[in-house]
Design a protein around this nucleic acid. Structure first.
Lengths: 235, 235
DNA sequence: CGATCCTATTATGTCTGAGTTATTTTGAAA
DNA sequence: TTTCAAAATAACTCAGACATAATAGGATCG
C-alpha cells in the first residue's frame, strides 16, 4: 500500500486552502483586499515567498486577482472556477448555500443521464463486464458498507469511461464527488436503506442493450430515487 | 472605455501559459520531468521565484505535481482540469485533437438544452425582455457582423442567467467560449450564412411560454443547425 | 540470499532582503 | 473642469542561503 504524500501539505498549499475556504465561505467578500504581502505573510507567520505562491494558486482558480499598487482583491463570484475540484472541496469545508447544493444536484441530473445515453451507444463488451462486476460488488456488500459504496462509485466510473467523452467524464466525476460529500452527512440513519440494486441493474441492462433513451431514463430515475432516500427532491 | 490590464502579462503568468501550452499540446508528455528549478529558470532567463510561481499555477490546474527530490512531473491527463478556462484556452492555442473538439460539442449539446429547459421554468419578464433585446440585435446586424455575434452571445448569456444555476452557467459559458474559438476558423465563407434568427426565436418563445420540453428541443435543434452550418454533425 | 534499516544525496520548499515595475493617486497646469 | 505629469505604493522580480523531504544506495541483520 503506497501511501501517497499529498504535496498540498506544504505551507503554500495549506495557506491557499485556508484563504480559499475563507473566500468561498463568504468570510472574505468579493472586492475585499487581502492586506499587503508583507503584513499578511507576517500575520500568518510565514515568508512572503510562501504567501505569494498561495496567492498564485488562488489566482489560478479565479478567486483573487493581484495588481501592483492596487493590491490583491477577491474577485466577484462570476470569475470563480466553482467546478474546480479544490474550490468545490473548499466550498464543502464550510456550510454551502442550500441553493448551491441544489444547483449541483441539478447539474448531476443533467450530466449523468447524458453520460449513460452516450455509454449505451459506445460501450464495448469490456465496459459492460466492468459494470456488471461493480454491480456484483454492490450485491455482495450493500450501500451500507464502505465496500458497497466503493462498488457504486466503480459502477458510475465504468459508465463514464464507456461514454468516451473526457470533459464530460471529468465534470461528472467532480460533481459526483461533491454530491457524495453532502450525502455523507445527510444520511437517514433511522430508516433501513432501500435496495438500490434494481435501479442500477436497469441502467446497466439499458446500456448493455445499446438503448440510449432507456439508459438516460433509467439513470434519471436512479438519481431521483437516490435523492428521495435523502428526503430531497428537485422542484 | 477602461482597458483592462491583464495580470497574466507578468512573467510568472506568461511562463505558466507557455509551459501550459507545451503540456496540453503534447510537447511535454505525462510523466516527463520539467528539469530542476535552477536549470529551467536559468534556461528561460528568469529567477527561480518567477518560475516557481508559474509551476504553482500549473499545479493548481492539475497539469503538474512537484515533490522534493522527485522533481516536477507532468501529470496524466486524468488529473487535468480540462474545463478550466485557461487550460481550455491553452488547448486551443495549438491544434486540439479532433476527438476533443467533438467531445466539447457533445457536452455543449447536453448542457445548453438543459439550461434552456430550466430557463423556461424560471424566467422572469426581465429575462424574456433581455432575450428579446438580444434577438433584436441579431436581427439588426446579422451573424456575419461582430455586433450580430455579440448579440448572439448576449442571447445565450440571457438564457443561462434565466436558468438560475450558477455552476451550470459557468460550465456552459466556458464550453461556449471554446466552441466559438473553433468555429471562428472553420466558417464556410463561400456559402451565404443561413438566417439563424428563426431558430433562436423558437427557443425564445418556448422559454417565454414556460415550456421546458419545447425549449430543450428548440435549443437542441438550434445547435444541430449551427453545427450543420459548419459542415459538421454529431454521430 | 533477502529484507530491513540507515545514510547520503538531491530537488523542492522556505526564508530574507534588496531592487524593479506597474498602477493609482495626487497635484499642478491649461 | 479637464489634462497631464510626478510621486507614492504595492505587487513583482531577483539573488543567495538554508531547511526539508523523498529517493537511492549501501550497510546490517535475519
Amino acid at each position: 500500500m503506497t501511501d501517497r504524500p499529498d504535496p498540498s501539505r506544504r505551507i503554500h498549499g495549506t495557506i491557499a486552502r485556508d484563504l480559499g475556504i475563507e473566500i468561498v465561505s463568504g468570510k472574505r467578500k468579493p472586492g475585499e483586499v487581502l492586506g499587503g504581502e508583507i503584513e499578511a505573510s507576517a500575520a500568518l507567520g510565514i515568508s512572503r515567498t510562501a504567501y505569494r505562491e498561495a496567492i498564485r494558486i488562488l489566482g489560478a482558480k479565479g478567486l483573487v486577482e493581484s495588481r501592483p499598487k492596487a493590491g490583491t482583491r477577491v474577485l466577484p463570484r462570476r470569475h470563480w472556477n466553482v467546478l474546480d475540484p479544490d474550490v468545490l472541496a473548499w466550498t464543502f469545508e464550510g456550510e454551502p448555500e442550500e441553493q448551491f447544493i441544489r444547483d449541483l444536484f441539478e447539474l448531476r441530473a443533467v450530466v449523468e443521464p447524458a453520460a449513460a445515453a452516450f455509454a449505451a451507444r459506445r460501450r464495448t463488451d469490456e465496459d459492460v463486464a466492468r459494470m456488471r462486476e461493480a454491480l456484483d460488488g454492490m450485491a455482495r456488500h450493500t450501500l451500507a458498507t464502505a465496500e458497497g459504496r466503493a462498488a457504486d462509485q466503480q459502477f458510475h466510473r465504468a459508465i463514464l469511461a464507456a461514454a468516451r467523452n473526457e470533459p464530460l467524464a471529468a465534470l461528472a466525476s467532480t460533481v459526483g464527488a461533491a454530491v457524495r460529500w453532502t450525502t455523507k452527512f445527510k444520511q437517514r440513519k433511522h430508516e433501513l436503506p432501500r435496495d438500490a440494486l434494481p435501479d442500477h441493474e436497469r441502467v446497466c441492462e439499458a446500456i448493455a442493450a445499446g438503448d440510449p433513451r432507456a439508459a438516460r431514463e433509467a439513470m434519471t430515475e436512479l438519481l431521483r430515487l437516490a435523492l428521495g432516500d435523502l428526503g430531497l427532491t428537485l422542484e
